[in-house]
Design a protein around this nucleic acid. Structure first.
Lengths: 224, 224
DNA sequence: TGATGTGAAGCGGTTCACAGCC
DNA sequence: GGCTGTGAACCGCTTCACATCA
């Protein structure tokens, strides 16, 4: 066990490991070595051991890791024992798609509300979720205990939305607006910029560069 | 001007710089210094100069960069002079949302077709786009000159889809399925894993860690 | 024996600091 | 004077190699 300074790369990978362990579990495997897990997660075995070493010693030398045991350790480490209430700001195309998506994906995140500043949408339902006026965010957020916000508004409004949302006490924000935002200290902001991703692909297409696989999310290591 | 080994971090940032330059351009600014651009892009000024140094010398000492000039250089560097034909595999919720989104976003990427293996969807239209049978991908891809594929199918099918798509000659793939995929050499694969992103947020929420802003896409530097 | 846990080496990206030029 | 371009320092993440232990 080491210090308490874990990088985002590491937490991303932990999430991937967890998913792999669930697969091993489903197929009835009892133990895995770091190499076996590494093969499935597309990482270096040492990477896995180093990542885990941040949190304790979970393996048995000469044997490997007990699938169920490591699985529940990771669930605990990632804070996935509880369910988080999630709000989506922006009930446009992307917002509603994300609502659908997140509504299904995991049991750990539950979409509780959508917000929009277009009052013609407010009061109605989108994809089965209530749409509230964004100006009421603070009060609704308190009532519904919203812990995570997803920003799906145009770039020009994104910073303003982030400010209001964090003002209301939300400490984790996922931003899909194509702008570099500035969050105040103590707030975790993740930006996923679909345009940047595409334009970056464009570069490699036009360069005819030796395109090796790269994962932006999911924390896969250097290309093989 | 340096070598020809540019990292993905760099190309992501170039895309961000370009967007910022477009904003400067729109507001009529003629020249920017690396510091001004850095402020808008949320990066270190030296980072910008280093990034650009990979491709040439575009600035004027004592002055800065001419907005229009640098803008068109970046467009050329990123290969954004042409339009790419894009196909989306998987006409489910996420797939159709992405079709809508990408259909609007940029003039540089044009959604030309959706594919699905559910034959009840095939032949119809989703969001204004034709839906083809995925088994016909190779022939349709050739006819429509598809250059970029977006994978929006369940994780269990993703590797198979990737294989078929690259077999058909597609060299740039964006993967939204939550699985670590393996692409053959010469193929650029970018994975965006929405579940991993959320679970990573969960970690920081549960740790009450000092959450500083982090951007996965968009290539923003270390937190301030 | 075999796989973990870990110090040390390696590597790449970021930042600094300053020389060079307008 | 001011800002770019860049070698060098810095820093952090990844990988190696091996001591450690069931």
């Amino acid at each position: 066990m080491k210090s308490r300074k874990v990088s985002e790369h590491t937490t991303n990978r932990l999430s991937v490991y967890l998913r792999c362990l669930r697969e091993f579990s489903a197929q009835g495997t009892a133990t895995v070595s770091s190499s076996e897990l590494a093969a499935r997660a597309q990482v270096n075995p040492a990477q896995i051991r180093k990542d885990l070493a941040n949190f304790g010693e979970f393996g048995v030398r000469g044997v490997g890791y007990f699938v169920e045991g490591l699985k529940s350790h990771l669930i605990k480490i990632l804070g996935l024992e509880k369910t988080y209430n999630l709000a989506i700001i922006g009930a446009g195309r992307l917002g509603t798609a994300l609502a659908d998506y997140y509504g299904l994906v995991g049991s750990n995140f539950s979409v509780v509300a959508l917000f929009d500043s277009d009052l013609s949408k407010v009061g109605g339902k989108v994809g089965g979720f209530d749409v509230f006026a964004f100006q009421d965010f603070a009060s609704v957020a308190e009532k519904c205990k919203i812990e995570v916000a997803v920003i799906a508004v145009p770039g020009s409004k994104a910073q303003e939305v982030l400010d209001k949302v964090t003002q209301a006490g939300v400490r984790a924000v996922m931003n899909f607006a194509p702008v570099p935002l500035k969050a105040k200290r103590g707030v975790k902001l993740k930006t996923i910029d679909l345009t940047v991703s595409l334009e970056s692909l464009s570069y490699f297409l036009s360069e005819k560069g030796t395109g090796d696989a790269v994962a932006d999310e999911g924390g896969i290591g250097r290309g093989a």
